[in-house]
Computed example of a mutant assay.
Amino acid sequence: MTKKDYYETLGVARNASDADIKKAYRRLAMKYHPDRNPGDKTTEAQFKDAKEAYEVLSDSQKRAAYDQFGHAGVDPSAAAGAAGGFYSAGGANFADIFGDVFGDIFGGGRARGAQVFRGANLRYSLELSLEDAVRGTEVRIRVPAMEKCETCQGSGAKAGTSSSVCRTCGGHGQVRMQQGFFSVQQTCPKCHGAGKVITDPCPTCHGAGRVQHTKTLSVKVPAGVDEGDQIRLAGEGEAGENGGPPGDLFVQIRLKPHSLFKREQDDLYCEMPVSFATAVLGGELEVPTLDGRASIKVPPGTQSEKLFRLRGKGVRNVRSGQTGDLYCRISVETPVNLTARQKELLQELEHSLREGGTRHSPREASWLDKLKGIFG
């Protein structure tokens, strides 16, 4: 059966660039791939035709032979029959094509030059006081990281010298190993992915192209950050390898314990000790806040653990801009170190309260009733 012209199969002109050929194949492969059309023999055949065309036209030598001799110059039929479903053309099997094209889509693929590595991300734990976290601040930090060697400008070679192309991988940074019908790529063991070999290394970085360095950075902490929040400093991580971009620095917030306040998201909590007399008779209390002082009115007969809410005295949320509240929990303090006279007065008060019956101690009376119900 007469085969269809490869250029026509991919829908490109005969003078199409390599990029146009790859783009056309990518479009057809995504459209006709068997995984997207399970059980459809027609699309499966179209996928195989497109793949075969790409295998030839993406290789400069095979493309030249095809342009001169047509299909007779690049007949993949014998290799296709032996490969059991993996179509190859002069050693370029389906696994290679899949890695080249779909790797571009999903982030992998075959390296066509020295491997470039992005620098590692760094993490720094920044401990802040509650006041600084709530109001915002600017902090200078010192971060150890790998940076580009200034002596050799990251080349790794001694001044006046240069690196040479790795003979093992031919400068690609990867070597290909044929295992049966599968072609496996791995990092070149000679140059470790750099694609080049340094014979006379830089005395400062010893050929690594990077050196350990401690840098000082200024971190602007926005108002309202909370425990565990992260501030990203783009490009302030470790330097990349082989000219790769640097990583990022993530500053993670840690809050120091506060002597008065406990933070729960955007709300603040504090405990206010109140004298027995104030709890009984009522009064006005001065309350500390992060913005100064405020006051609350304690009604007569206030019980311990009662919460008083001060609206808008909490933390302003770093994202929404809404401000939380301050909750003051009353803690009635029992008098200690009493004199004989004070004890006598308390006994008189207790006796007077007992005479008043349950109206002075309703909670105690209710509790006693429950005990009677349990024990009879």
Rank of each mutant, 00 (worst) to 15 (best):
V287K: 02
V139S: 02
A133L: 01
I374T: 06
C205V: 05
G170A: 02
M1E: 08
H192Y: 15
G107I: 07
D104Q: 05
A95I: 10
S183F: 08
C202F: 04
D229S: 10
G119V: 00
K196W: 02
S58I: 00
G207N: 02
L122R: 07
D369K: 10
G171V: 02
R110G: 13
V280I: 08
S352K: 11
T278E: 13
Q322K: 11
A83N: 11
E52F: 09
G376P: 09
V143S: 11
R232Q: 14
F98W: 08
R110F: 14
F375A: 02
V184K: 15
L310A: 09
S183G: 07
R27D: 09
R311K: 14
A19K: 14
Q185T: 01
A78P: 05
D248T: 06
E364A: 04
Q185I: 01
T43W: 02
S125E: 13
M1F: 11
Q178H: 14
T42M: 11
S17L: 01
L217D: 06
G292Y: 07
R210S: 08
A133I: 00
K256P: 00
D5A: 07
A159Q: 08
I105F: 15
E333A: 05
A234H: 10
C202D: 03
L281H: 13
L233E: 09
Y327W: 12
P203D: 15
E52P: 06
L122K: 10
E271N: 10
D18C: 09
F276N: 01
L10G: 00
G170D: 07
G292H: 05
D229L: 07
T339F: 12
Q178D: 15
E305P: 00
S129E: 11
G282H: 03
E8F: 04
G103L: 05
R27Y: 10
R167W: 13
V134D: 03
D100V: 04
A29E: 07
E271R: 09
T2R: 15
V74C: 14
R341V: 01
T9P: 01
V134H: 02
A29Q: 12
F106A: 04
L249R: 04
K48R: 07
S129K: 08
F86S: 04
C152I: 04
G376Y: 08
H258A: 02
V318W: 13
R135G: 04
L217A: 06
S163W: 09
V318Q: 12
S218F: 03
K31G: 00
H172S: 10
E150R: 10
L346W: 15
G90H: 08
V318C: 09
T278D: 14
G376I: 01
G376L: 05
P222E: 09
F261M: 04
K370W: 14
A95Q: 14
L217Y: 15
A294L: 01
Y269S: 03
I231G: 03
